[in-house]
Design a protein around this nucleic acid. Structure first.
Lengths: 251, 251
DNA sequence: CGAAGGGTTGAGGTAGATCAACAAGGGTGG
DNA sequence: CCACCCTTGTTGATCTACCTCAACCCTTCG
């Protein structure tokens, strides 16, 4: 893990590869100039590295530039719940805006690059660029609605339905961002332990549930990742109706 | 359920009783004047009434002035998951900001009064009152962190721990808002069915779990509500460390 | 080469689901 | 007034989805 400020490694916002993706909205030149100045550096972490720790104060906000990560919480005895995954374009660290004290931890799932913003300067954003302030609220509201769906899933869906939902969800997200590919096909880079901790299941039962999905030809399990073969079929099992998201904002 | 615009029923923001509560931050005169003009009316609903429906578009945002309600989602076959409860000071309807299409439903738990705001005018808020825009983001981020905690609870806590957490959580929230009182003591106005649908448990098991908590002297179950006798004890069972929230914003 | 992380599978146990029956209150219609 | 229904809460009996325990395999890595 290293904090890199040198121009050599730094991606200019003007040339940000994320902006070219269909899912994101266009920026005005003025907005772009501000975001560019707002960005104070880049953080490169390797797979498994800890990016934020619950209880610690963070002076920064981050946007994922490339790679995967996840947010989680743990109980005292070590039980872990993964709350959501972070992919390119996602903002992390907004949760504790007021005092900056994190209520969850964040870990890298693959090598990951984050754009770093100073929390101190966020007020400049709201006062000078109302459209970006609006976007920020929208981003938080979107995360909220994802968490709503996860809550429904864990609370009311069976193990098979839950797993199907989660994989369809992750597939959809990965597909619309840059997509993490391995040998040309889209692979979700997680272990069964991660899935278990997201689904609220034991690892053994998770394994058996995945086997059922694999036997039905819906997914293929690889070394340390999952290939989704039929996301529509998965969504159908879960009774989930994915909402397509064109034109979403990001910072 | 009735839409009331007459001056007779309307609470002026300047005299809003919520502002007097300790938990909320002070407004400047300018902010107050704007919010006051932003408020377009009041909505009065009776217990059990439907306030928002998943899939429908809503032209409004609401702030709870008095009473209780809850947000929920249902699966096709009727399984219901309650996502969170809404209490005085809470904002509802932010989730679908972009297109206004609701991804969850809202129902009144008691008689409830909501301040109505036009979604159309929200951009005025961001452009003219950055501090309020900031607040809006903060409110969304706060809801997010509550959902995180719920997710941890449903995913990883046992039935007893879950129930203990939820009741401690609701007690804390009710206590810091105006608090719904019945014969002088604070009572959480829900049925066991609501609890079951929040905890992701069956109603029978919820009943047996509540009995355990009641037998330990932590709560008392009333006609159609719950009285919390020892919120610290509940939080301890759940392994939950409540974060006190002085000075939170609201619109 | 051993150790550690990831995945797999079977056997047996248990938390919580489902089914069923009943009690108590409230509301409604006759 | 009673007779009826509906909602809410309660409790016991039985069932099952998922958990825990316990092997074992394979690959990677120091």
């Amino acid at each position: 893990m290293a904090f890199v400020n040198s121009e050599h490694y730094r991606v200019n916002c003007e040339q940000c590869p994320l902006r070219r993706l269909e899912q994101f909205r266009e920026f005005t030149a003025k907005e772009l100039a501000f975001v560019s100045s707002f960005k104070s550096g880049e953080l490169h972490s390797s797979a498994g590295a800890s990016i934020m720790v619950e209880g610690a104060r963070s002076a920064h906000l981050y946007t994922v530039l490339s790679g995967w990560g996840f947010r989680y919480k743990i109980l005292e005895d070590g039980r872990r719940q993964i709350l959501n995954y972070i992919l390119p374009g996602d903002l992390v660290g907004l949760q504790g805006t007021l005092d900056g004290e994190m209520r969850h931890s964040v870990e890298a799932l693959t090598a990951i690059t984050l754009c770093v913003f100073d929390r101190d300067r966020i007020y400049e954003l709201f006062s000078g660029y109302p459209s970006l302030g609006y976007d920020l609220t929208w981003i938080a509201a979107r995360e909220e609605s994802i968490l709503d769906e996860h809550l429904l899933s864990i609370g009311r869906r069976s193990a098979l339905e839950r797993a199907a939902y989660l994989l369809a969800f992750l597939y959809m997200r990965a597909d619309s961002t840059g997509a993490y590919t391995r040998q040309g096909t889209l692979t979700i880079p997680i272990t069964q332990q991660h899935l278990a901790d997201t689904l609220g299941l034991s690892i053994v039962h998770t394994n058996k549930t995945l086997r059922k999905l694999a036997n039905s030809g819906l997914i293929r399990w690889l070394d340390r990742g999952c290939e989704v073969l039929d996301s529509t079929g998965l969504a159908k099992i879960a009774g989930w109706d994915p909402v397509s998201e064109g034109n979403r904002p990001f910072i």
